[in-house]
Design a protein around this nucleic acid. Structure first.
Length: 111
DNA sequence: CTATTGACCTTCT
DNA sequence: GAGAAGGCCAATA
């Protein structure tokens, strides 16, 4: 049995982010909860920050619990995240998306 | 090595 | 219902 290292956790985060359907978004808390760490939502942010230059990972589909685009300033341009979401049909108003309409809950990862 | 910060969340007041 | 505090894990100074 392999012990869980942080790299494995990062890999799981990337895997879930890649599974986010186009036109949908999810939150850091849901990803952390799907991974089993209830209060490890900040880790998701760090994981995405480490792979924000990877085009294979749609980091723009991850928002905070309020639906705000808190990570937009960490993209190449401050408006890139919003433009990517709008390009997928997600309506962004006041730097915020409607989670009741676009939220996608990731399945719980079982090992 | 300790202290502070960070793309956050839950719970208590 | 809104606001404050605590907690969690990892990275940086």
């Amino acid at each position: 049995m392999e012990r869980e290292h942080h790299q494995d956790l990062y890999e799981r985060v990337y895997r879930i982010v890649q599974q986010i359907p186009r036109g949908k978004v999810t939150t850091y808390g849901h990803i952390a909860r799907a991974l089993g760490v209830r209060s490890g939502a900040r880790l998701v942010g760090w994981a995405l920050n480490a792979a924000k230059f990877d085009p294979e990972i749609p980091c723009h589909r991850v928002v905070n619990r309020r639906g705000e685009l808190t990570g937009k300033m960490h993209f190449a341009t401050p408006t890139l995240m919003r433009e990517l979401l709008e390009g997928e049909g997600v309506r962004v108003s006041d730097n915020r998306v409607d989670l009741h309409q676009y939220l996608w809950v990731p399945p719980v990862v079982q090992e």
